[in-house]
Simulated assay, not measured.
Amino acid sequence: MQRKKAPSLLTLAILGLAQVTFSYDAFAKTADSQTQASTAVIALQATRYQEDAELIKKTFEEQLYTLNAETAGHYGLRMYRQTLNPKYSAAVWSDMARVASTLNNIAATVHTKEQAKKYGEDKLETYKEKNKPRSQLRYQVTKDKPEYLFLGIDLLSTMARANEYGLKHQDDSHLRGLLGQFDFKPYATDPDMIRAWAAQLANQVYWLRQLGEQDVVDDFVAVLQKTYPDSKDKELSDQQFSNKIYGLTHLIFAASEYYQHPVDPKEFAWIYTYFDKNIDQILTRTKNDVIAEVGISYLLAGKLNSSTLADTQATIAHAIDMDKNMIPSTDGDYELQKGEHRNVLAIMLLHWQGVHNAPTVNNHPPVFKNVPYGLVEK
C-alpha cells in the first residue's frame, strides 16, 4: 500500500498529538504551552521519519550484495558517511575497487588526446542506443566532444573519489597530465552542455577544484544562472526544470564533498531563496530523488527549521510503499538496482545523522587494510 498524499502540517500536528498521553489542558496551564506542543509534534514526526528510513534500509540491506558493485558501493559509502558503521566497509571496498579498475584501465590505455577522444566515443555509443529524451539530448550535445565523457564521467569522478579516501593512483602524475591536456572551461560554460549535464558539470567543476587543477566553479555558476533564469521556469519542460534543480542541488552536494562537510548557507543563499520560493513547483514537477536532494541541501547547511525541508520530508515519507518498504519509480517499478539512488537519498533525508569526513585512510584504517591494486596513499 503506497501512501497517496502527504497530509498538511496541521493534520500531522493533530495526528501526532492524538498519539501522546497528555492533554491540551495540561499544556494550557503553562505560559509556553504552544511551544511545548510544537516541540512534541516535531519529535513525533522525527521518530516517524526515522522509522520510515529504517524500513527502507532493511529492504535494501537484506539484498545489498545482490546488487552490482557500483550500486552497492554507492549505497554503502553514503551509509558509512552517515553512520560510521564498519558494517558498510565491504561496500566501500567495492567502490574503491571500481575506482581502481577505472583508473588502472585509463593509465594503461590512454596517453594522447586522440585516445581520450576514442575512449569517449566508445562510451557515447551507450547514450546513442537509449531512447529516453535525456539520453538522446546528451548524445546530440556531446557527439562532437566525446572526450568530455572520458574527462568528466570517468577520469575526474574516480580521481576525486580516491582523493576523498586519502588515496591516489600510482600513476597520478600521468593522470593529471591527461587532465592538463584539456581546458575544461568550454564544457562548463556551454549552455547546451548545461542543459544536458547540469548536475554532472556541477560535480566536475568542484572536483577539479578539489584536485587542485583548474578552477572554473564561478564560470560554471554564472552560465548556469543565465541558461536557466528563474523568470523562464514556466517555459521549461519538466525534464529541463528537473535538470535545473539537479544542477542546483549538486552545487551544494559537491561543495560538501558529498556529505562530508557542512556548507555555508550564505554562500548558497541564492539557491535556498529560490527553493523556498518555488518549493510547490519542485514538489509537483520533479521526481522523488530530486525532491530528496532539495531537502538534503537544507540539512547540509544546518537549516533544520526550514519549512521547505519539512515539505520535502513529508512528501518523501508519503511516497513510500508500505507493503514493499521502498519508494517505487514513477511508473511503479520496484527493482532494487534501479531504485537504489532515490531510496538511499530518502534514508538520508528522513534520518539525517550529520556530516562526517569519512572514510579516510588516516582516520579509518581498518577500512583500508587491503587497498585494491593501483591505489596508494596520497
Score class of each variant (00 low, 15 high):
R81N: 06
Q34N: 11
L55Q: 13
T21D: 13
K57I: 02
V92A: 04
S157W: 15
G76P: 02
Q50F: 05
T66R: 14
S23D: 06
Y75G: 08
K57R: 15
L84N: 10
S89L: 09
A28C: 10
L44H: 08
A116D: 07
S135K: 02
E129Q: 13
E70I: 11
L151C: 03
E129C: 01
E61M: 12
F22Y: 07
K57P: 04
L155E: 02
T59H: 06
M96E: 02
T30C: 07
E61L: 15
K29F: 00
T142W: 00
M79F: 00
N68D: 08
K128F: 08
G73K: 03
T71W: 01
S89I: 10
I153N: 08
F22K: 14
H74Q: 09
E62W: 04
M159V: 04
T47L: 11
T39M: 10
W93H: 14
I106K: 05
E114F: 03
K145A: 09
N104I: 09
A31D: 14
E62K: 14
Q63K: 15
W93L: 15
M159E: 06
Y139V: 14
L64N: 08
S89Q: 11
S38I: 01
A91L: 08
A53M: 04
H111F: 07
L77R: 13
T83L: 04
A28P: 04
N104H: 11
S94M: 09
A91R: 06
T158D: 11
G152C: 12
F27Y: 07
N68Q: 05
K145D: 11
A100P: 00
E62I: 04
T109R: 14
Q82F: 00
Y148M: 05
T109C: 03
K123N: 11
K118S: 10
Q34C: 08
E51P: 00
H74I: 06
L84W: 00
Q136S: 06
K117G: 05
K132N: 15
E114G: 07
M96W: 01
K57Y: 03
M96D: 01
E54R: 15
Y49V: 05
S101V: 07
K118R: 12
A43L: 09
D95S: 12
Y24Q: 11
E121W: 01
A53S: 12
M96T: 02
Y24M: 12
Y127T: 13
Y65I: 09
L124F: 04
F22G: 10
N104P: 01
T142Y: 00
T112P: 06
K117E: 11
L151K: 08
A53T: 13
Y139T: 15
D25R: 13
A72W: 00
A53E: 10
T142K: 06
T109K: 15
Y139G: 15
L137D: 13
L103Q: 02
I106T: 04
G73S: 03
T21G: 14
A40H: 04
T83S: 11
L124G: 02
L55H: 09
N131Y: 06
A46E: 13
N131L: 09
A100Q: 03
V141F: 07
A116T: 01
E125T: 13
M79L: 05
R48A: 11
E125S: 12
G120T: 03
Q63R: 15
A37C: 05
A31N: 11
